[in-house]
Design a protein around this nucleic acid. Structure first.
Lengths: 244, 244
DNA sequence: TATCCCTTACTGCGATCGCAGATCGAAGAT
DNA sequence: ATCTTCGATCTGCGATCGCAGTAAGGGATA
C-alpha cells in the first residue's frame, strides 16, 4: 500500500524499521480501518494478530489500546476487542463534526495552495478516478481517503489533520459495510470533480463548499444502510463476520 | 464521580479499581495536564513515574504512549518524553479548532439542557467562583476545565467531547505557564457569568457566543506570554523545570 | 589545569511469563 | 433427549527481564 514512499532511495537495502513496531502496526491498522479492511462487529485478537505479523503481543497491544482510546475499537464486557457497530446517532455526530472540521481544513487549505500541493492533489485525484473505474471498492475507499487527506494536509495544521483522520477511522468500517454500490461511487465522483476544480482554481470558499457537499451527499445513503443493517437479524451475533 | 453507581451494595469495602491501571494513570495525567500540574518542557520518565505510583512500568508506558499519540507529550531525539513547548502557530491552530468545536458543542448543548444539566453546571460554576476567589491558580484551572467540560457534556456527543478535551490537553501546560495572573482570572469570570446566564436561560445562540468570546478573550494574553517565554533564555534548557 | 575517554546510569521498546475472568464444548446426570 | 456442570482455551492486563542507544560523571593523561 504505502511501499511507494520508499522510492527516494534508489538502492537501499530495505526499509528495515524507521518507526517503532507499535507505530508501524498502528499505521497499518489505521489504513486498514479507513479503507474498510475490517467490518463492524468484527472481533480483533491481539495475540492472533501478533502471530500473523510475526511479532510479540506487546506492540500489537499498545497499538490496539490506542485505537480503542480513539473510538476505532471497543472493549466488550467479555474483554474482547471488536470494531464498533455505529448507531445512527453516532454516525450523525461524526458526520456533523466532519462537516465542521473538514470544511475548516478545506477553507484554510484552499487559501494557501502551492503549486506542489495542486500537482500532488491532482495526482491523487488521478489514482482515485482509476480506482473508481476499476470497480474495486477497497481500492476506491483507500484512494478516496488519500485524496481527502491530501487536501487537508495542505492546510498545514497537523492537529486538525489528525482529528479528521480519527473521524474517518471511526466511520471507515461502517462506510465500507454500507456501500458496495457502484452507483454511489460514480455519483460521488461528480463531487470529486468539483473539489478538484476548486483546488485548481485556488478558490477556498468553493473548495470548502464542495467538501461539505460531498459529505452531505454520501451521509444519507450510509445512514439508511446503517439502519438496514441494524435491523438485519444476521447482525445479532456479528462475531462470525469474515476475518482477514 | 461515578462511584455512585455501586450504590446497590450498601456496605462495600472500597472502590478498589473499576478501570484498568493504565486507564487510571491516563486519567490522572490527563487531569494533571489540563490543570497545569506539568510545565512545558518538563521531562517525564515512565520508570520514575511508575515508582511514584507504586506500579510497574508497563501501564505507565501505555498511558504515556497514548498521551504522546494525542500530542500531549512528545518524544525527543534522545528518546526522552517531555511536555511540548507550543509555538505561537501551534497555539493559533488549537485555538481555531477550539473555537469551532466548543462553539458547536455549546450550541448543541444549549438547545437540550435538562434541569439536572442546569443544576450541575451551576454547581460547577460555584466551585469555579470559589477557586477564583481563593487565588489558587491550580484549583482555578481545574475548576475551569470542569466547568467547560460540564457544559459540553450536556451536548451528549461523546466523540466531540473527547476531541475538545484533547485540545485542552495540548494547551493546558502552556496556559498554566502563561498566566499566574490574578487580573486575568477576574476578567475571565465576567465571561463565565455570561456563560452561566446563557445556560440558565437555555439560550443556545447566546451560550455559543459566550463560549467563543471566552476563548477569544484569553487567547491573546496566552499567545503573548508564549512568545515572551520562547524569547527567555531560561527556557533554552527547560529540563530543569520543577518536578511534582 | 584542561581535555579526552570510558564507565555508569539512565531512557524507551520489545519479549516472555503468569494471572483473573469469560466463553465454549463435551461429558455426565436426571 | 434435555439440562447441568466442569474443564480446556481463549481474552486482556500487569510484572519482570533484557536490549540498544543517549547523556552525564569520573578518572587518567597531556
Amino acid at each position: 500500500m504505502q511501499n511507494s514512499l520508499a522510492a527516494s532511495e534508489p538502492a537501499q537495502m530495505s526499509p528495515l524499521q524507521r518507526d517503532s513496531l507499535q507505530q508501524q502496526i498502528y499505521d497499518r491498522l489505521h489504513a486498514g480501518l479507513i479503507a474498510g479492511a475490517f467490518r463492524p462487529g468484527e472481533v480483533i485478537s491481539s495475540r492472533s494478530l501478533a502471530g500473523q505479523l510475526g511479532v510479540s503481543a506487546m506492540p500489537v497491544r499498545e497499538a490496539l489500546t490506542r485505537l480503542t482510546a480513539e473510538g476505532a475499537l471497543e472493549l466488550t464486557p467479555s474483554r474482547t476487542l471488536r470494531v464498533p457497530v455505529l448507531s445512527p446517532d453516532d454516525f450523525d455526530e461524526v458526520t456533523a463534526i466532519r462537516t465542521e472540521l473538514e470544511g475548516m481544513a478545506a477553507s484554510r487549505a484552499g487559501g494557501q495552495l502551492s503549486d506542489d500541493d495542486v500537482a500532488r492533489i491532482c495526482a491523487l485525484y488521478g489514482t482515485l478516478a482509476q480506482a473508481a473505474d476499476s470497480g474495486d471498492v477497497d481500492r476506491y475507499l483507500a484512494a478516496n481517503a488519500d485524496f481527502h487527506s491530501g487536501i487537508y494536509a495542505a492546510a498545514r495544521w497537523p492537529v486538525l489533520l489528525g482529528m479528521i483522520q480519527r473521524l474517518w477511522l471511526i466511520v471507515g468500517p461502517s462506510i465500507r459495510a454500507s456501500l458496495p454500490d457502484q452507483g454511489h461511487i460514480s455519483r460521488s465522483m461528480g463531487f470529486h470533480d468539483t473539489i478538484r476544480d476548486a483546488v485548481v482554481a485556488g478558490d477556498a470558499a468553493a473548495l470548502s463548499a464542495a467538501i461539505i457537499a460531498d459529505i452531505a451527499n454520501a451521509a444519507p445513503e450510509i445512514r439508511t444502510a446503517l439502519i438496514a443493517q441494524a435491523a438485519t437479524p444476521a447482525s445479532a451475533h456479528p462475531q462470525g463476520a469474515a476475518a482477514s
